[in-house]
Amino acid sequence: MIGDSLLKKKETVLDKWRKAIIASYSPDASLFLRNQKNQFANPVGFTIEKETAEIVQTLFDGGDIETLAISLDRLIRIRSVQDFTPSQATLFLFQLKRIIREETTVESAEDYQKMAALEERIDSLALLAFDIYSRCREQIYDLRLKEIKARAFRIMKDSDLISLDIKQEGNSPHENT
């Protein structure tokens, strides 16, 4: 369990963290992402709000971080298909470390140990985040393949049904890229 001083800062940490995540989007979109509270009208903003709360709560309560896999998946899955590089997509966990440091004063050896333990937990989350990000990207490539197969699954069973000239030339633009 983290010290009382940090526990008091939970809401501030959470607020700053959310702001940092929202700031990774265009400034023109940040008002919408923050202010539209309907979970169906603004699923990205809603996910950020809900899952960051879950993560901070568990981290501060000393809960099992394995239980955060779903929250982390929800956040990273969205970022894995948006205009982010892998590092940009996962940066937000490192930002959380920075925010906590900024909000905390380490005054004793005990504080230091608690802080180190907390940061280690965030590092574990970061490692989990890399796994999730990679899994999402792999899934995108699997889905591409699956869609192509499903698109004409009957044709694949009986290729005589497709006209010859398409078969020879192919209608896939991949061939000329």
């Binding site: 205009d83 590092s87 940009q88 940066l91 995108i140």
Partner: peptide, 29 residues
């Protein structure tokens, strides 16, 4: 170096004039 410096990015996108027509054709988009 702070983490965001390590990954060498400015995580806050700059506000761009909408009239600026720049687009990046990123694979997958």
């Amino acid at each position: 170096p702070k983490p965001e410096e390590l990954v060498a990015i400015d995580y806050q996108p700059r506000r761009r004039d909408w009239m600026d027509p720049h687009v990046e054709f990123r694979k997958g988009t």
